[in-house]
Design a protein around this nucleic acid. Structure first.
Lengths: 123, 123
DNA sequence: TTTATTGGTTTAATTTTATAAACCATACTA
DNA sequence: TAGTATGGTTTATAAAATTAAACCAATAAA
């Protein structure tokens, strides 16, 4: 595949990650993700909204609001048990995996192209 | 290393990427990054602000403002030639590489821990 | 030296976003 | 059934971000 095509494909892949990047690119939501990370070993099922409000010092509506954005961006999973909602990180099923692959590709693609002397420049 | 420590390290690594994530988590800046990607094969040195305003349909002050944020977050590189400023993606030197490594670690760490049955739960 | 080009910055207005209060719905429990 | 806990949503306000206009500085060219 030529450089142009490869870069176009990479730009498209990056575009497909826009929603996930925007969702994760907010400090408040980053705190929520950190709280979810730290709870991975504690609770298999994930943690509840009440626990998240404690750990992040955010109000419940704020947590709820940002969880919705993270859910819509498919970055976190959740399960219901009665009125209790458990939120958790699930890397493989979520778009975190999509982000991982995308960053791997940026690195591979850009470094490849920048290493090679360009043919158009007369090499 | 035990799970708790491993997760704490991951959360710290994620924290160190906060600035980069916030910078990249903006639609306008995502368009700028896409323009920079697509120009990798065209111009070795990178592209100028004027070219970016054309490609993104943003005003010059807007481009300038967002480039500054991307620069401050160490996501892009630039070089001066007289009054001309060339902006470019440099994956290895920039914090894009830091993001790549961080996402690789999220994947490795979380999936490892979620795969193993937890010892505390009586296994 | 004068003029043009390039691009960063400040400012002020608009737009967007975030938040807490109040409210609603659901599902357990006694 | 009444009471309690959980948590999502709406709304009104406050805070923050975005942008274009105007301005400024530096360099290049004529």
């Amino acid at each position: 595949m030529d450089k142009q095509k490869r870069l176009k494909k990479l730009a498209d892949e990056f575009s497909e990650c826009k929603k996930a990047l925007t969702a994760i690119g907010d400090e408040t939501r980053q705190s929520i993700i950190i709280a979810l990370m730290e709870s991975v070993s504690d609770c298999e099922r994930g943690i509840r909204v009440g626990e998240l409000t404690k750990r992040t010092n955010l109000s419940r509506p704020a947590v709820s609001h940002h969880l919705k954005i993270l859910k819509d961006a498919n970055l976190i999973g959740f399960s219901k048990e009665g009125t209790k909602n458990y939120y958790y990180l699930d890397v493989i099923k979520s778009d975190i995996f999509k982000l991982k692959k995308m960053f791997d590709n940026i690195e591979a693609c850009i470094t490849d192209i920048q290493k090679q002397p360009s043919e158009e420049d007369g090499v």
